[in-house]
Amino acid sequence: MSLIINLVLMVFLLTIALAVLKTKHLFAMAMLFGLYSLLVAGLFVVLDAPDVAFTEAAVGTGISTVLMLVTLASIKDGHEAVSTGKTRLGPLIICLMMGGLLIYGTHDIAELGDIQSAPNQQVAARYIEKGQEETGVPNLVTAVLASYRGFDTLGEVTVVLTAGIGVLMLLGQRRKIYVKTKGGSRAE
């Protein structure tokens, strides 16, 4: 059953990705990105990663979509179409190379659901057996996120905080408007 759900989600993700590539309207593109992120969060739930799904739903679907819509609202004409200028080959080549490297990097990852893989045989068993004893935290998920992977969690929170502060700084800046006068120009 989970394979069928995965395939349906992947078909929807591919369809939305193609729609993003074909659309010319920025508002529609922002909404499609939000929907894409929501489906990715659903895929994470199916893959038994609810913590990653919550993060994707909050940051990807919520914050990113809101930031894109705020950006569209703050520009002069939010309904203008994307320019259809020259196609740039450089970014496409870089994307294809990075995608190839990511696919190559997945060859060392254990098979999904393989009970004989090292994480399932060693790490998970240790967390379950000694988690409460070593950390003093009764909730196993909290013990893993806060104690065993505390620095990783701190890094993730720092990245989100830094991104939030950067966005607030960008949105808080007022643009200077230069008004032409007879003797030159002045900022307002």
Rank of each mutant, 00 (worst) to 15 (best):
D114K: 05
V82A: 09
L140N: 08
Y148Q: 05
S185Y: 15
N120R: 15
M1E: 13
M169H: 04
L168K: 11
A73W: 13
V52E: 06
L145F: 10
M98N: 08
T142P: 04
I5C: 07
G136I: 04
L112V: 15
G85S: 06
L168F: 12
L43R: 06
I115P: 14
L154S: 14
D77R: 15
V160K: 07
L101E: 11
I75S: 09
G78E: 03
E156C: 14
G113W: 08
A110I: 02
L14P: 00
V70Y: 07
L168Q: 09
I16S: 03
Y148L: 01
T135K: 02
K76C: 06
S64R: 10
E129V: 02
T181D: 14
L67H: 04
G78T: 03
L18A: 13
Q116D: 12
L21R: 10
G164I: 04
V159G: 05
K76A: 10
N120G: 05
V179L: 13
G100H: 08
Y36R: 04
Q173W: 09
L35V: 12
T181R: 15
G105I: 00
G85H: 08
F44Y: 10
L170F: 11
V159H: 05
V82C: 09
K182L: 13
D48A: 10
G184T: 03
I63D: 05
L39G: 02
G100W: 06
S64V: 13
Y178G: 02
I128M: 11
M1R: 14
L170T: 01
M29Y: 05
F151M: 15
E133H: 04
D77T: 13
G90W: 12
E134L: 07
M97N: 09
T15I: 09
S74V: 04
L14G: 15
S2H: 15
V141G: 07
A163Q: 06
L89Q: 09
I177P: 03
L67D: 00
Y148W: 07
D48E: 15
T84E: 15
L13P: 02
T84I: 06
M31R: 00
G100T: 11
A53G: 01
S185I: 05
E129N: 06
M169T: 10
G155Q: 12
G150M: 08
E56L: 00
L171V: 01
V52Q: 01
M29I: 07
A118Y: 13
G131L: 03
L47E: 01
G166W: 05
V8F: 11
L67S: 05
E129I: 00
